[in-house]
Write a protein that binds this DNA or RNA. Structure first.
Lengths: 239, 239
DNA sequence: ACAAATGGTGCCAATTCTTGGCACTGTTTT
DNA sequence: AAAACAGTGCCAAGAATTGGCACCATTTGT
């Protein structure tokens, strides 16, 4: 049996039987007493907290709090988790956010450094605030699922993004903007873009955007998005 | 050099150099061509997608989407992430929530089954809704950081919880309740408890709770908490 | 006080796994 | 046809793991 498999088997056994002895483990996983002791030492090095009561009637016991999950996450998944926690933290004084941050920090540490840079720059452009309760939500539609990936790719590649937009009065226009930031005023999401044709920032409600696509062979510079206290003022969105 | 370290080195190199050859990798990590080929095979088994163009001018290329992060998370950390995503989903139609769910599902799958059961039962008691905009938040205080762990332990162990409570009019009372559910009306958190002395449910704003502790040697049964549509009606909280 | 049961460590030879070299195959580009 | 590349099978040399042993420390029951 493999070292890895044996370690897994030992952890599982420790979990199942509240308390075991080294000899019982040895016969269970089919290894010698010495090897099991070595394995336990290795598991402790990995962070598992295994209590041991020495003496007659003693035994090994695994601290359930120390059980760790080895999750394999793809980059978009980490990304989604990151945004969830960021939004959660922005939404209020949530007592779990410290723990969630710690978890994300671990995930982030395991990510490739260039991806972390991408994520940070994406998070920097993410502004989360509270929506004014006066906002009329009756016409809220469903967001195009292709929008987020397109925006992410365009933002990171500094490419312009092109889409059809339907404004509050139902007028339809074609837009081509530099994606500069994203604003979440839950449950509404806004794309903040610099419109070169109008030489100014524009806000677009994401559920009013359709057929988004990145424009190849273009590039733009990052601009300082004028948010007050990292939150877009309500009046801005009335335009 | 260790097998593990070499694998990491190979992944890093593949990430840095867009495209490489087996021989270049071999000299870089200080191993033989044969070993590198074996490593690449192993990495592919682990889920990395490594494209290989054979022939003159060929080379290896790592699919960036396949890069996975192997995060080691403790149970409380997973827990915190889970709550964040659950709250996020409840808060609105967030386009990332599907991805976040997928990430959490993977994490959950890697958790020991008994812990998953704990988490589920905890999540079942978690109710998330929107706070009425009329709520006066001026007196919102900071939540005792010891409260959540105490509540979690008490809830899972079906132990009573004891604390000091300061009500809306500033009156202080000692309470001893069965923790039945938790209600988040962001940014306020409420503990929903069954008060045996009053033979009824009571809501407690968590930032008004102090010195919480679990009461040993007691146990209680789970009750059906009367939420309408999984959200506590606003009037309930005015008491 | 003593014996038994238990966890824990150091040492070393036996066993098992990993590695490197080699020959070979197959594909693509020049 | 030649060169450059990925990929596979085989096997001996080298490296790591394993098991056995002696031994120590602690606890509990007799």
């Amino acid at each position: 049996m493999n070292v890895r498999l044996r370690h897994d088997a030992i952890v599982r056994s420790l979990r199942r039987n509240g308390t075991t002895t080294v000899d019982a483990l040895a016969s269970e996983v089919g290894a010698s007493r010495r090897t099991v002791l070595r394995d336990i030492s290795a598991l402790r090095d990995e962070g598992y907290v295994i209590h041991s009561d020495v003496g007659r009637g003693g035994g090994l016991q695994l601290d359930p709090q120390s059980m760790q999950t080895h999750a394999k996450l793809s980059v978009p998944e980490v990304f989604a988790l990151l945004i969830s926690v960021a939004a959660m933290r922005a939404a209020g004084n949530l007592p779990f956010s410290d723990l969630a941050d710690a978890g994300l920090a671990k995930i982030e540490k395991a990510l490739p450094s260039d991806k972390v840079k991408d994520l940070r720059s994406f998070l920097d452009c993410l502004h989360i605030g509270q929506l004014s309760p006066l906002q009329d939500l009756s016409d809220m539609g469903k967001m195009d699922p292709a929008l987020l990936p397109t925006f992410e790719a365009a933002f990171l590649g500094r490419q312009l993004i092109r889409f059809d937009y339907r404004d509050a009065k139902g007028r339809k226009t074609k837009r081509q903007v530099e994606p500069q930031a994203m604003l979440i005023l839950s449950p509404l999401w806004y794309l903040v873009g610099w419109d070169p044709a109008r030489d100014d920032f524009r806000h677009f409600r994401m559920d009013r955007i359709s057929t988004p696509e990145a424009v190849p062979d273009t590039s733009f510079r990052r601009r300082h998005v004028p948010f007050e206290d990292d939150v877009c003022p309500y009046s801005e969105l009335q335009k």
